[in-house]
Amino acid sequence: MDIWDTACQELLAEVAKAKKSDTLPSENARGFWTEALTAFEHGGNECVAGAGKKDEAQASAGIREVQKGISRLAAAVSMIKSDLEAK
């Protein structure tokens, strides 16, 4: 659980940085990007809260939410790649 806590806290720090950066090379990807950050933030918070309480079920639920964010991020990256190749 300590490893999950540390990893999720690091994820939350990176999400905070990403939210401050408003430069995406593709407007088409913005929705997926926003969904990914939201899932990372919500999942990361659940993971940290669960790990802090040694509540494996809550921490695991947070990690599953983070995994959803990963799929959204993959979609955003794919869309960005396509848009950049089209230029």
Rank of each mutant, 00 (worst) to 15 (best):
T34L: 03
G43E: 03
A36Y: 10
G31R: 09
Q67L: 15
R30P: 00
K20M: 09
G62S: 03
E41G: 00
A75D: 13
E46P: 00
K53D: 08
A51M: 04
E46H: 03
K54G: 00
T38F: 02
A7Q: 11
L84N: 11
C47T: 07
K19I: 07
D2W: 09
G31D: 14
S26H: 04
K53E: 12
V48S: 08
T38V: 02
A36M: 09
T6F: 07
M79L: 13
I3V: 11
L11D: 04
A29F: 06
S82M: 02
A51P: 04
A16P: 09
D83C: 06
N28V: 07
S78Y: 14
F32W: 11
I70A: 09
V15S: 03
A74V: 06
E56T: 11
A59Y: 03
E27G: 01
A59C: 05
K87R: 11
S26N: 08
L12V: 10
S71W: 03
E65R: 03
I70E: 14
R72A: 14
A39T: 04
R72N: 15
A36K: 03
A57I: 13
A57T: 15
K81E: 15
G62L: 01
G44E: 01
W33N: 09
T38D: 14
S78F: 02
K87Y: 06
D55I: 02
R30G: 00
D83Y: 06
K53S: 07
W33Q: 07
E35K: 15
R64H: 11
F40R: 02
E65N: 07
A74Q: 13
G44T: 06
S71V: 06
K19F: 05
A29E: 13
I80M: 14
S82I: 04
Q9G: 06
L73F: 13
E27R: 14
A16I: 04
T34A: 07
K81F: 05
S71H: 13
D5F: 09
A59I: 08
D83A: 07
H42Y: 13
V48I: 10
E14N: 09
A51T: 10
G43I: 03
K68G: 07
E27W: 00
L12G: 12
H42W: 09
G69R: 01
E35L: 06
A86E: 15
L84H: 07
A7E: 10
A51V: 05
I70S: 06
D22I: 03
Q58M: 12
S26L: 01
I70L: 13
G52P: 08
G43R: 01
T6N: 10
S60N: 08
A36E: 02
K87G: 05
L12E: 15
W4H: 10
C8E: 04
A39W: 04
Q9V: 05
S21H: 10
D83W: 02
G50Q: 11
A13W: 04
L37Y: 12
G43W: 05
K81P: 00
T38E: 14
D2G: 01
H42V: 15
A13C: 05
I63T: 12
A74F: 03
Q67S: 13
I70M: 12
